Amino acid sequence: MKIGLNTDGLADLGLEETLDYAASLGLDCVEFGLGGWSSAPHVDIGALLASAAMRDQLLGRLHDRKLTISALNASGNPLHPGEIGPNDSRLARDAITLAAELGVSRVIMMSGLPGGGPEEKMPNWITSSWPPEAMKMLEWQWRERVIPFWKEIAPLASARGIRLCVENHGRQCVFNPDSYLRLRDAIGPTIGMNLDPSHLIWMGGDPVAAIRALGAENIYHFHGKDTRIEPQARMNGTLDTRHVVPVSGRAWNFVPLGHGLSRRGWLEIVQVLREVGYNDVISIENEDYMLEAKAAISESVDVLRFAIDESVRRIPV
């Protein structure tokens, strides 16, 4: 099993320093954000698409440090009813093209979230079957926006040998295994899941149960990211509209691995990943707002190394 890093977690560092740090930790691969909800701190998708020399230079920098690219991340909302939608849809298509040019086989995306009807101007996340109009909006979203978009973009990826890794995320149409499987059933195996346990945790899900339900045939990429449920959740539940900072008073917070789930909890995740046949990358995505970024990432690497080494001892591969 490999350990990777979403380089957005080191957005304050330049590309060279970021790659040097990843290499110093003995990581295997990196994941680059290209835009959308990423500031794209380390690569310029337009420049890379325009220049074979720049692509070769990037690959050379990675090769010199014994690193590869696990995935390109084009997370945004391609179904947004405003101008964001076309921009993020274009980003996804460009990411597929760039991935093929770089020899990268995976592009991470969000499923997207449209409005609840043709006249709405803002996305509408349906989380309950009541009141009755909720189900009408949900079915309209899937029939008129979600399925048509993915039926259009999946063949573009398939033609270039790219797998689309849809991340489970709140305020997206795909936010858990059930909603992902609805999309997979409609589109086929060009899409799989970028399974992010942190989002399942804050919504009350169990990552281990999700891994068992999905199996390796549905898990195309995996984020190493953790969530701590805070005492405030006992009163309010985990739905929380407070900004991510300050962290005090929130119902939950993103934290380094081992600060939410225990080390043993991460061992169980890695064991179950191995059991279902996933023996690929766990890409650390650090969004902790309390610790210095390098310290948080280093702690996460330490937890993953423990979990991987211990899982090998328990489940010989």
Rank of each mutant, 00 (worst) to 15 (best):
M1P: 14
I3T: 11
N6S: 11
L15D: 09
T18C: 05
L19N: 06
G26N: 04
E31L: 02
S39W: 03
P41A: 05
D44P: 02
D44K: 11
I45H: 04
A50Y: 12
A52V: 06
A53K: 15
M54S: 14
R55A: 12
D56P: 02
L62G: 02
D64K: 14
L67G: 13
I69T: 06
S70G: 15
G76A: 09
H80W: 12
P81G: 11
G82Y: 05
G82W: 13
N87W: 10
D88G: 11
S89L: 07
I96T: 01
A99Y: 02
R106P: 04
V107L: 02
V107R: 11
M110R: 10
G112W: 08
L113W: 05
L113C: 05
G115H: 01
G116A: 05
E119H: 07
P123W: 09
I126N: 04
S128M: 00
S129Y: 03
P131S: 00
M135C: 01
L138C: 01
E139I: 00
E139P: 04
R143I: 01
L156V: 15
S158W: 06
S158G: 05
S158D: 10
A159K: 14
R160T: 03
R163Y: 09
V166R: 10
H169D: 06
V174W: 04
N176I: 04
Y180T: 03
I187W: 02
T190C: 03
L195E: 02
D196Q: 02
D196A: 00
S198L: 07
H199Q: 08
L200G: 04
M203G: 09
G205W: 06
G205Q: 11
R212C: 01
A216R: 11
E217V: 01
N218S: 10
H223T: 13
T227D: 06
T227N: 03
E230H: 07
P231I: 09
Q232M: 13
R234W: 07
M235N: 00
G237M: 10
G237D: 00
T238Q: 11
T238S: 14
D240L: 04
V244Y: 14
P246D: 09
P246S: 03
V247C: 07
S248E: 14
R250L: 08
A251C: 15
P256Y: 01
H259F: 09
H259V: 04
L261R: 12
L261F: 09
L267V: 07
Q271R: 15
L273H: 06
L273I: 06
R274F: 11
E275F: 02
G277E: 04
N279Y: 02
I282K: 06
S283D: 08
E285D: 05
A293I: 03
V303G: 02
L304H: 10
R305K: 14
R305C: 12
D309Y: 04
R314H: 06
P316N: 09
